[in-house]
Design a protein around this nucleic acid. Sequence first.
DNA 1: AAAATTCCGATTTTT
DNA 2: TCGGAATTTT
Length: 768
Amino acid sequence: MQNLLQNLNPEQLAAVTLPPQNALILAGAGSGKTRVLTTRIAWLIQTGQVSPAGILAVTFTNKAAKEMLTRLSAMLPINTRGMWIGTFHGLCNRLLRTHYRDAALPQSFQILDSQDQLSMIKRLLKAQNVDDEKYPPKTVMYFINNHKDQGLRAGQIDAYDAIERKLVELYALYDDQCQREGVVDFAELLLRTYELLTRNQPLREHYQQRFRHILVDEFQDTNNLQYNWLKLLAGHGTGGGGALFAVGDDDQSIYAFRGANVGNMSAFEAEFNVQNLIKLEQNYRSHGHILDAANMLIANNSKRLGKNLRTDAGHGEQVRVYEASSDLQEAQWIIEEAKNLIAEGASRSEIAVLYRSNAQSRVIEHALFSAGIPYHVYGGLRYFQRAEVKHAIAYLQLMDNPHNDSAFLRVVNFPARGIGARTLEQLQNAAESYGISLYAAVPYMVGKAGTSLGGFVKLVEGVRFETQQMALPELVRITLESSGLLAHYATEKEGADRIENLEQMVNAATQFVSEEGYGQGAPAHLGPQADAQAGEAIVNADGVEILDADAPLATVMSPLSAFLSHASLEAGDNQAQAGQEALQLMTVHSAKGLEFDNVFITGLEEGLFPHESSSKEDGGVEEERRLMYVAITRARKRLYMCFSQTRMLHGQTRYNMKSRFFDELPEEALKWLSPRVQSHWFANKKATWEDAKLSGGSDNAIAQRIAQQKTGGSGWRIGESVVHAKFGEGVIVNIEGSGSNCRAQINFGSAGMKVLDLSVAKLERLGR
DNA sequence: AAAATTCCGATTTTT
DNA sequence: TCGGAATTTT
């Protein structure tokens, strides 16, 4: 215990040892948030205030859940099994598996990832003869998901026009189809669980009484459904529920675009009558100048809960700012500085290059590649998303639940076995008219189609039978073999990597079996294991028996089902990073939660960061500012910021102004590395030749770029910075016509793009 | 059924 | 511009 609370600062200590009441912890970046969360759990258990089974800890990502578990088992001598620590989706999965009958799901329901969901919607639109120009599949998907995230079923939506009515209809049809197939999408996991607990009083009360302490990480990222889900479990308004301990940072709320509602923080404070609000403002990560920059920037946001980070570390070095003339040159500069850092002894993995959008990585990657510096890009395809792996998973899914049409269609003719588009169309019609799955419709097919499809069914059934008594890894191996996938890729030229990925799956299954505590030899197909310790049986007043969805999962899921859930809910690592020392390239979003000694924030230009589409939605710029805040607070020792006067985007050269965020940073914390007086025209001219050299451009390319420096005889040049009395600072993007008919297209940033007559408009040159 | 061609979209992302 | 998905050609 002494150990546990050692070295906590007063605020952290206060948070950890709060009485069992609702609490809101405002945890600034680098303030030891995870430490507080895990120490709180350990303290509650060690002081005997709660048993491990009374703990529910919820996170958003598997990574965060895993980290919490790891830290906890280091702190506590006891088994962490009894605690419920996981993601919203993972916990819902567990609840639904246990109470599948009450939730009206088949025991081996399967989880659709976003890809599967989209393809299912496409299929639905086709079957319904819906014009996909008028109702793009993506739009339908967003409509469905957004409403599920709000807790709304199709029947609960008020539609005001024909289009909305159609979307509602499609939503209902989609849900029907999912139900027929026995599949659920990600949002459905949450909504189903919410509805289950709302509807079923004994179940609800059982879990409300069980979970004495509910702890939530990254609370600012919760959407409305998640908030209501927590409210329900915490027994809000019933008096009988547990205490909700929410940890979050409103200044790091950067996921509004996927439904996160920062307002949940203040809603929680008000609705749960929170008496315990603790701010963690002591930062253990960054040097002073970096924190000053972050603090001053974020102060420009309104509606904050209010927080100011402080550090005991000194000022440290200033933030280095660089203005490049082109995106190529920006990349070149980054590489020079990175080389210097490495020469000074910095480890490559302690250098991060952050950007607002993925498209920006290309130029930087190219430059790094040319310079021979190893790098790692975050956010590529994850293991379980790879085509070949998804194919293998589809075969496994069919063995566990043959009515999953997505899985059926994915592999019915892969590897090719002569089942073409016509055959499948017939099959889909049959399935449609009988209201059954494709698999179930196969017996209705006659002739050649019947034979070929029947062969496929026999294949699936055959493997299923053959593997009945096998353990999971063995089952996976046989499936890879019998499906013909291995043989198929063996004939492909580029198949070696794919085969390796497939073989990797046997290892993944082996690892899964040992980590999840399945008896090594347990048959993969078998349902809840007889020898596994059963969950505690509860009988309510009406004599209804409730089985607690307790660990281990083996009590409620067959190893195969569990493995398939795992594959859907945890898509796995992004590519084989080879573990070598490499520069870290990623978007600002994916950098959240990480920290590095040295950080580059790149592309700090109006239109890019803040992104132009953010200025259209209200609160958009404030969210971009929070994003910038996240970016700045990633850095421990050294922070670089850069921007470029010209940039190639979607095949066109764009002329951007420097980001407004520079004006919101303390000048004394910045060190400008590039001369700021240089005119755009001169810089562009220079850029033209430098870029030509960098990219090895031909004379033709050089001439083309120089041709862009046309003036229209107006005295103004493209790329030049100007000031207009009304619109403020801008950059000339294009010049049309000549003489008295000469008009210039000018990007005034937040004031928008304007076309001005140069003989009329009063413009001044900007000597920056 | 594979190969070639056209078309489309383009912020951010986890489950 | 460029990568992927959809469509058409061989």
